[in-house]
Amino acid sequence: MAQIFGIDHKYFAVPAVALSVGISAYSVYRLYSQSARKCATRTPSNVYESEKLLGEYLVFHYGSPEQLIPYPFGPKDALDFPKRSSELCLKHYKAEDGIPSRALDVGCAVGRSSFELAREIQDVIGIDYSQSFVDAANRLKIDGQVPYSLVQEGDIVTPAVATVSKDINRNLVSFEQGDACNLRSSLGEFGIVLAANLICRLHHPKDFLSRLPKLLSKKGSILVITAPYTWLEEFTDKSLWLGGYIDQNGKAVTGFEGLQRELGSDFELVEDVNIPFFIRETARKNQWTVAHATVWRRK
Rank of each mutant, 00 (worst) to 15 (best):
V17T: 13
L19R: 14
S20V: 00
S20G: 14
G22A: 12
G22W: 09
I23E: 02
I23V: 14
A25S: 11
Y26A: 09
S27Y: 01
V28W: 10
Y29F: 10
Y29W: 11
Y29G: 14
L31R: 15
L31V: 04
Y32C: 05
S35T: 12
S35C: 03
S35R: 10
A36M: 09
R37A: 09
K38R: 14
K38L: 13
A40P: 00
T41E: 07
T43M: 06
T43G: 05
N46P: 10
N46R: 11
V47N: 08
Y48L: 13
E49V: 01
E51A: 14
K52C: 12
L54R: 13
G55L: 11
G55Y: 11
E56F: 15
E56Q: 14
L58N: 04
V59R: 06
H61W: 06
Y62A: 03
Y62D: 01
G63R: 07
G63P: 08
S64H: 05
S64I: 05
S64Q: 06
S64D: 04
P65M: 09
P65K: 10
P65D: 02
Q67R: 02
Q67C: 02
L68G: 05
L68D: 01
I69L: 12
P70H: 12
P72F: 11
G74Q: 05
P75A: 13
P75C: 08
K76G: 08
D77S: 15
D80V: 04
P82V: 00
K83L: 07
S85N: 13
S86G: 13
S86M: 09
S86L: 02
C89V: 05
Y93C: 01
I99L: 03
P100E: 02
P100D: 01
S101H: 08
L104D: 04
D105S: 05
G107F: 00
C108I: 00
A109G: 13
A109R: 09
A109P: 05
V110Q: 03
V110A: 11
R112I: 01
F115V: 00
E116D: 05
A118T: 02
